[in-house]
Amino acid sequence: MKNIKKLVSTALITMFAFSAVGCNMIEKTPEAIAKSPVAVVNGEKITRGELDKSADMMGVVAQLKQKYGENYDKNDEAKEILKTERQKVVDKMVTEKVIEQKAKELKLMPDESKLKTEVDKQYSDTKQQFESSGAKFDEVLKKEGFTEQSLKDFFLAQTRNNEIFKNVTDNLSKDIKIDDKKVGDYYNSNKNQFTEKPNKIHVAHILVKTEDEAKKVKERLDKGEEFGKVAKEVSTDPGSKDKGGDLGTVPYVDSGFDPKFMEAAIALKEGTISGPVQTSFGYHIIKAIKKEEYPVKKLDSVKDQIRKQLEDEEKQKVVSQKIEEWKKAAKIKTYEKNLQ
């Protein structure tokens, strides 16, 4: 619930910092537009008003106002961005609506009385946060067109969506178990993730377009030509060419480099040079200049960590697949014309 509170409070601060978008919509557009559907999910309507008052869209509009000013909606570039972002948020709201409908069907809806208690606390905490900074909260609410109840309704919608998703996730993943064999297999295949300190490698490369070019580069190096000299002559990597192919020191895990490149680099002994290694960038000749490797932690000390990681990954997979199934089975109609 702490994460939910943080997200909702952040959304509120964003609204107040950059003006009440919802109110502006009511002032600038006919009431009919606010009531027009942007999507219908199994007979339940999502309106343009609900879309424009959502926390996601309020954040988008706040950013557009920062970049393009108060008249952002007159700027062609901003209008295109706004339309694209509206479509993304509609897609998200459709998914949320499908999940909510299934939660009702499966009797997984959160307890409304508990939600109300949590929302009252969120409201109180947010009010205290504003007033501690010297702002008069009631005046801020009035200025931005909110009442105590409408603000609580905003909090309630956000909190309810988070609780629904949690309940559905817990239900769909309740039978997921990761046995010791899977834990052990993952450990044995990913020992670089479990070293006492992060393993690192100082690496250089020469990048060329074709395998034949890479083979010719390797032949030159095998005959004794200096790696950095050859890299400056033939490498096509603009970021490292002038440095003699030097890419610096990077960790084995989360290096930011292509996985195939890192696999080949890690496999090298310190001071040795690889044969051609193909990635989406072309063909590399890789040199392991220096390696820093540390002992691997014992399985018993990391097995709980691994089990939780694998469980979380499996839960995400199961839940994503099920939600996609629900969406495919649902009757969904969107109204692009109402996003203008």
Rank of each mutant, 00 (worst) to 15 (best):
A214F: 06
A214C: 07
A214K: 03
A214L: 09
A214V: 09
A214P: 04
K215L: 04
K215E: 05
K215W: 04
K215T: 03
K216D: 05
K216Q: 13
V217K: 08
V217R: 03
K218S: 05
E219R: 03
E219S: 13
E219P: 11
E219M: 11
E219T: 08
E219W: 01
R220H: 05
R220V: 04
R220S: 14
R220W: 04
L221F: 09
L221W: 10
L221I: 05
D222H: 01
D222K: 07
K223Q: 06
K223N: 12
K223L: 06
K223W: 02
G224Q: 03
G224W: 03
G224H: 01
E225A: 11
E225C: 10
E226K: 00
E226D: 14
F227S: 00
F227Q: 01
F227A: 00
F227Y: 07
G228I: 00
G228M: 03
G228C: 07
K229F: 03
K229G: 01
K229E: 11
K229A: 11
V230N: 00
V230M: 00
A231R: 03
A231T: 11
A231P: 10
A231G: 05
K232G: 08
K232V: 08
K232H: 08
E233C: 05
E233D: 14
E233F: 05
V234F: 02
V234A: 04
V234L: 10
S235T: 13
S235Q: 02
S235G: 02
T236P: 09
D237K: 03
D237L: 13
D237T: 06
P238M: 04
P238R: 11
P238A: 09
G239W: 10
G239D: 15
G239H: 12
K241T: 06
D242C: 08
D242F: 12
D242Y: 12
D242N: 15
D242A: 14
K243I: 09
K243Y: 09
K243S: 12
K243A: 13
G244Y: 06
G245D: 02
G245K: 09
G245I: 10
G245V: 07
D246C: 06
D246N: 10
D246M: 10
D246A: 08
D246E: 09
D246H: 08
L247I: 08
G248Y: 14
G248D: 06
T249F: 10
T249M: 11
V250M: 14
V250D: 15
P251A: 10
P251E: 03
Y252P: 12
